[in-house]
Amino acid sequence: MDVLSDVLAAMRAGQPYAGRSTCRAPWGVRFPAGDAACCHIVMRGGCSLIPLEGEPVNLSVGDILFTGPQHAHTLADQPGSAAVDFRPDYNEGYSVAELNIPGPGAATEMLCVCYTFDLARPHPLLATLPPLIHLPARVGDNGPLRATIDMLGNELHQPRSGTDAILPALIDMLLMYVLRAWLDGSDHSPGWATALNDPTIAIALHRIHRQPEYPWTVAELATQAGVSRATFAKRFTTAVGQPPLTYLTWWRMTTAARMLHRSDATVQSIAERCGYGSEYAFAKAFKREYRVPPGQYRRLRSHSRTVPSHIQAER
């Protein structure tokens, strides 16, 4: 089990969407502080990112900008230009209609990809993501990421047979490569960048994600990681933000909720997969976390794209 891939799968809600834009100065586009993270790539020209707080960030050809959920921002040819609201049509699936803003000035072409995350039960990784991740273009830098951008741009520019199947994989690849670049360039301050780059913590996370049904103890996880119990508990809690067994329970319940929503597995089989010996014990733990029994949660989620507010997990 690849922990980062598993975490992203658990965080996502609904389908991502992507599109191309061609804007001629003067122009501006406002992105609201919703539950979506956005990735902007400048293909031609240049522009400025204007956050709600802080100084504008100038973007040039090849620059990549990732903005996390709940971070409103504006892209414009320059600060002060009039802006329109970004309102994608979710019914269009993975690709939205191209955004074109006419004007007398220079043109800027961009790719925009947005990922909707489930903020009712956010993974701790989201809390450690910076509001902005700016990856400037550098010759010869991060070839796989650049290749993914080229393929995504081609599919959006000239959709062909198979595009609907290809786009989801490319969109996921783009997000993964951006997060990899952030993780690799992190200053290793406490947080998930440390957790995934620290072999001691990464081994324990791998074990938890691979076998959530196993009756893990702190001592056994420490043995797997090759350090003392006290050292492991302290390092894990500092990096992940939760003690080992608290995170284990959190991940079990997250796995259970995902299986209830995305599979037809019985409640008993989900209970066993998540380390509970009886359906009763599992239902009690699940209701404590989500405030409704597993069966009711499944029925409510089947009729809603996001988790209704009254069944959001306790935080």
Rank of each mutant, 00 (worst) to 15 (best):
A137D: 10
R121S: 10
A120W: 10
L129V: 05
P124V: 04
P130Y: 07
H123G: 00
R138S: 11
L119D: 00
H134D: 01
R121Q: 09
V139R: 15
I149T: 12
L126N: 02
R146H: 02
I149G: 00
I149Y: 01
V139A: 15
T128Y: 07
G153I: 00
V139S: 14
P144N: 04
L132M: 11
P130Q: 01
L126C: 06
I149W: 03
P131H: 09
Y115M: 06
A137R: 14
L129N: 08
P130V: 02
Y115T: 06
G140Y: 01
P136I: 03
L145G: 04
L129D: 11
L132K: 13
V113Y: 09
A120T: 14
G153T: 00
F117I: 08
F117K: 02
G153F: 01
I149E: 03
R121P: 01
A147P: 06
A137V: 12
R138C: 05
P131N: 07
P122I: 07
T148E: 02
H134Y: 02
L119A: 02
L135R: 11
L152W: 03
T128H: 15
A127C: 10
T116P: 12
L145V: 02
L125A: 07
G143Q: 13
P136K: 00
H134R: 08
Y115P: 10
P122H: 04
R138P: 11
L152P: 08
G143K: 15
A127R: 13
D118A: 04
I133T: 10
L132F: 15
H134S: 03
L145K: 07
L135A: 04
A120E: 11
H134I: 11
P124L: 04
Y115F: 14
N142L: 14
P144S: 00
L129H: 03
R138W: 09
P136E: 05
I133M: 04
H123L: 06
G140H: 12
T128P: 11
